[in-house]
Design a protein around this nucleic acid. Structure first.
Lengths: 225, 225
DNA sequence: CTAGCATTCAATTAATTACTTGAATAGATT
DNA sequence: AATCTATTCAAGTAATTAATTGAATGCTAG
């Protein structure tokens, strides 16, 4: 029957994308890639995976159409295929957050702060930035910041925050962001900053969402090497 | 390390949703459920699955938060958990369509018509409806039409289309829709109608997308039974 | 053109998943 | 209370998936 094989062929294709999203390690790789292109080795170092295993997962993702790869010199760089993939990941997290009660349990178990630290939406941040009311703080590793960040944001990786507090104006509100709505770095940063007396908030989502919304970004220019 | 178990715990939760989307049969069940609530038996009849197997898949979906169940009399009715799930499914299909070349291959293999039969977007249909320029045709089974349909649409299930052509005004444009952007029913309907000399087009997406966009719908009132 | 490096491939093992079959449960109907 | 009906549970098999290890490939730079 024409209609039935068409249907099952199509659902099998859609399921390939679902399969790619069905492994926690692959989801972590996608979150890293959403920040910018990365080599296999670099990804393996950022996760707890072996290089060979990382490579296999990346190929799985590529076959599902979620990432693309490009060889540059000795290294192979993987990137997210498009903005639609960022939206898909956002949708996935959104559904999980709304309908799986364990997600909320995990967040409240690991984070002491109440009501998720009052996240502020991107549009609101943009407004305050224009009035010069806030310091925007990117707490991701330098590598990710360099690959692209919210325009005007300063970068203090979370591990260095305590040592570099003097870079921050105690009189001005701070809005911290990182990789996405559930990335712990910004949560941690806000907690630390509040303890030190700063007025700190978390950006509702992360850099990838800011970028695909078409909001202003900038990159650290890298010289050819 | 606090951050790492938080992260892997969270990604494991998100992966549960991915897992639920990783099986073609579950995706088909979700597509049916997106049309309206359905009993296990009814879903088993609409698919090629046994009742026990259908039940297991539905439980898998429920554990991932994608569907909810409610017992009414003898039967258990399953429903989509929320609009966010419809968006997730749309996002999934969108990514697959854009980045997996096989998807386009399948569509063009099974469908002779060129450029996917000129789909018209929902906003455009709404405009033409207001000017009374089109007949909106729902070609899904009556059960799905009754559970909810585009306001003003008439229902002729695809198998009955050939016998009921006299219900359609040959002078007016026809826009056909069904379960979603890749549902074959509307493709078939447009093909059939064009052969008979009608000016027919396909609605770009299906009923679930129309509904979650907040566009006007209506339901067939069912008496209690 | 050889040595070194990043990535991929191939083979294996352990774990998970899909589906079938038949029995069990929990409500509704007689 | 006994029976019927829709769904779920439980056990078993076949198939798929994740991760490890070590070898192979394909560039690059000396």
């Amino acid at each position: 029957m024409r209609a039935n094989t068409f249907k099952s062929d199509l659902f099998s294709q859609f399921a390939r994308v679902g399969k790619a999203l069905s492994n926690p390690n692959r989801l972590e790789l996608l979150e890293f890639l959403a920040q910018g292109a990365r080599s296999v080795e670099s990804l393996a170092n950022s996760t707890s995976l072996s290089v060979a295993n990382t490579s296999q997962h990346l190929q799985h993702l590529r076959q599902a159409g979620l990432v693309t790869s490009q060889k540059k010199g000795l290294k192979v760089y993987y990137s997210i295929s498009g903005d639609d993939v960022i939206h898909l990941l956002d949708s996935l997290r959104d559904v999980a957050e709304r309908h799986i009660s364990d997600v909320d349990k995990i967040v409240t178990t690991y984070l002491t702060a109440k009501d998720h630290l009052d996240p502020i939406p991107a549009t609101e941040l943009l407004k305050r930035v224009k009035q010069d009311l806030v310091t925007v703080l990117d707490v991701r590793p330098k590598e990710e910041y360099d690959a692209g960040h919210v325009r005007g944001a300063i970068n203090i990786p979370i591990e260095e925050l305590e040592q570099h507090l003097q870079q921050l104006d105690p009189a001005q509100e701070i809005v911290a962001y990182c990789r996405g709505p559930h990335c712990i770095l910004a949560f941690d940063a806000v907690e630390q900053l509040r303890k030190k007396g700063f007025q700190a908030h978390r950006l509702e989502k992360g850099y990838p969402e800011w970028k695909v919304a078409g909001l202003p970004i900038e990159k650290t220019i890298s010289t050819t090497h």
